Simulated scan of single mutants.
Amino acid sequence: MLAVSGVTAVASEDPVATRKALMQSNGAAAGLSGGMMKGEIPYNAAAAKAALASFNAAATAFGDYFPEGSDMDANTTASPKIWEDMEGFEAELDKFQTAAAAAMQAAGKDGPADLDAFKAAAGSVLGTCKDCHEGYRVKN
């Protein structure tokens, strides 16, 4: 239990670094998912389940790392709109959490049965990522 508390303390001390780490995890899961969905990477149920699990873990934790003032960090691509419209941002996070949880449920114990089942599960999650990025991320 102490180790978990220590991780939480570090994360709360640097919410921007934590957000970035969670987004990197999402990026890796999205890359794997997209590769399988496009046929660039052979479909693998265990890898598909791992990608969905990564999305679900990030969705569960992500909202905790947007405290007031963390928008002032020069190293963030989080849009100031998050803090201006926290209710709207939280609605997007709810969509992400709902889609990720549903994808995990659909994946079952061993992962999606085939590529089409994975596309259905992952597609809705990736759609929520796109929607949130369009409204709440600074474009580079």
Rank of each mutant, 00 (worst) to 15 (best):
P67T: 09
Y65P: 04
D94R: 11
L115F: 00
A102G: 03
A107H: 03
T128Q: 07
A50S: 15
A99D: 06
P80W: 08
E92N: 14
M37L: 14
N26F: 03
G63W: 05
A57F: 12
A47V: 08
S25W: 04
A48Y: 04
Q105N: 10
T60G: 06
M72D: 15
Y65F: 15
A99N: 10
C129A: 03
P42V: 08
S33Q: 03
A78T: 09
F62N: 08
G35R: 10
M37Y: 06
E87C: 02
Q105H: 05
K49N: 12
Y65C: 04
G127K: 12
S54H: 01
M23Q: 10
A28H: 08
M86Q: 13
A46C: 03
S79I: 03
F62K: 10
T77Y: 10
K109W: 01
D73E: 06
D110Q: 11
A59G: 12
S54L: 07
C129K: 00
A99T: 09
T128N: 09
K38P: 03
D116T: 00
F118I: 00
C129P: 04
G108H: 06
D64N: 14
S79P: 05
N44E: 14
S54W: 00
L52V: 12
D71M: 12
N56T: 11
A46W: 02
G31V: 09
E40T: 09
P42W: 06
A58C: 10
E90G: 05
E87D: 14
N75Q: 11
L22I: 09
F96W: 09
G34H: 09
D64C: 03
E87T: 13
K95V: 08
